[in-house]
Design a protein around this nucleic acid. Sequence first.
DNA 1: CTAGGGTTAG
Length: 610
Amino acid sequence: MLKMMRKTSSSGYSYCSSSSSSRRGMSYCLHSTTLVVPVHNYMASLHSQSSKPIKSQLGKLVRDPPSKPKFTTLEDALKVFDEMLHRRPLPSVVRFNQILGQLAKLKQYSAVITLNKQMVLIGIAHSACTLNIIINCYCRLNQMGFSLSVLGHFFKLGLKPDTRTFNTLINGFVLENRVAEATGLFSKMVEEGHCLPNVITFSTLIKGLCMKGNNSAAIQFLRKMEKRGCEADVVVYSTIIDSLCKDTLVVDALNLFSEMINRGIAPNVITYTSLIDGVCRLGQWKEATRILDEMVSNNIFPNVFTFSVLVDALCKEGMVVEAQSVVQMMIQRDIEPGTITYNSLMDGYCLRGEMDEARKVFDLMVRKGSMVDSRSCNVLINGYCKQKKIGEAEKIFQEMPRRELVPDTITYNTLVDSFCKAGRIRDAQRLFSKMQECGQLPNIRTYTILLHGLCSNQQLSTAIELLREMEANKLELDIVVYTVVIEGLWKAGNIESARELFYGLSTKQLQPSVRTYTVMIDGLCKGGLIVEAEKLIREMKEKGCSPDGCTYNIMIRGCIDNNEMSRAMGLIQQMVERGFSADASTVELIVDSLSQDRVDPALLPLLKNS
DNA sequence: CTAGGGTTAG
């Protein structure tokens, strides 16, 4: 990335290092001639946007009655609404729809619902548009039940649901990750409904499939819509491109990108931002620069999202100084860093353990006024916890209500984990209860954390009790949960129960992970059960679950400890062949064995690369 | 007047 920042390319946009590099690192500027042009273009395009064509403004003045509602806050909207209710004759439903629509855009969904109820009381007849807005609000409030019941009102009122109605409902299911129901509604719409799906229908479904990680199904839908004569657009392509990038399938993403360009669909800043995110995830900074250059030469300019992606990528690489410079650059270009930008920056400092710097960012957000959100707190809490400064973390946690922020599952999980790691099981349990009292449902990770805490604090029986409780409550337990408990059982020397739980996994339809096998192998080796451990290595390979470096190291150490030197040598060879290497404690053990003439010195070269 | 895509944390 440094290279990327320093690059003085001839193709339009690039970062350059300032000659006056400060102590904390280089500050970047945009003063090379190659940069000036795009930046000016950029500013110019901003201006032309804000000073909207005069013609259309005139047109609006003529077309729109003077009473057209305009507001930016809930209070204003309520005032206008109230005034309208008292006007006689009552304004048309369209006027009311405008208010509801604008409020929905301001994300005041519950307010929309409330106002709608007043409309019903006054006797204003709904239009299909009103109902569509209401459906959308219920969807956004995760109240699909109500959304669907509004669908019934259409028929009662003699109205027909339209494509927008279905699209909104489909989107509602997608937002709740209920993709099967979304596709079900789609089929219903196509098979028995009278409204045709349009590009938005498809893109909504494609988004749902992408959310499920089903990229191939998403691409199939892309092909399907084309066959139906429904042309894909930039949104459809961007959705899939983004999903591929998230799965680091950047090559596929770039292919799809070429495809859309060949079809004359112009990418926009979102498409480019997704691609930049994708290549940054792979650490391909040069490619990131290339894409940045390309977008700018196409007159598409990075926005707050694009910059935030860069800030985040740099932070994840530990290059906080460079990230800070990108933030500086944003400010220079009048792109205000947002909460997300600062949260990424804060996390960058936390990752490096620079908590004072992280705290400065937090305080800066506070000073700027209500920029801090619950995620900011989570990031900082996590940072403090990782530095074992639980007291500081707790302070941030306790201050959350004062900032009108609600701790979420992540907040609690972070703190519970931290308490467990500090051996403060009671505190962890207390917080676990508190989160439930506060209406935050523990998720599977919360339980995993607690189980792990109990196991590593000699409270195995409580852990088992909790596990049984979870099973009884029909929680969807995953392999991670069982692996944690199996590990606890081994540590407590409860060999039989560990075996029993492990061999019983298949009846629970759970596949052991590499980690599960490794935990088992570790336990078996420590119990001197080398043969059984080796059997497990074979089994995992057969099941397509390849042992990793950790598995080999543990098995090799087990063999040496149990004086199974030829087995150990075979495994060392195998491990190296598979591209893993001995870790420090394995090397130590091997060197010891060599000095005692217990192993073949021919092995020594194999360890060199570790 | 109503519907779809991009950035952050455990």
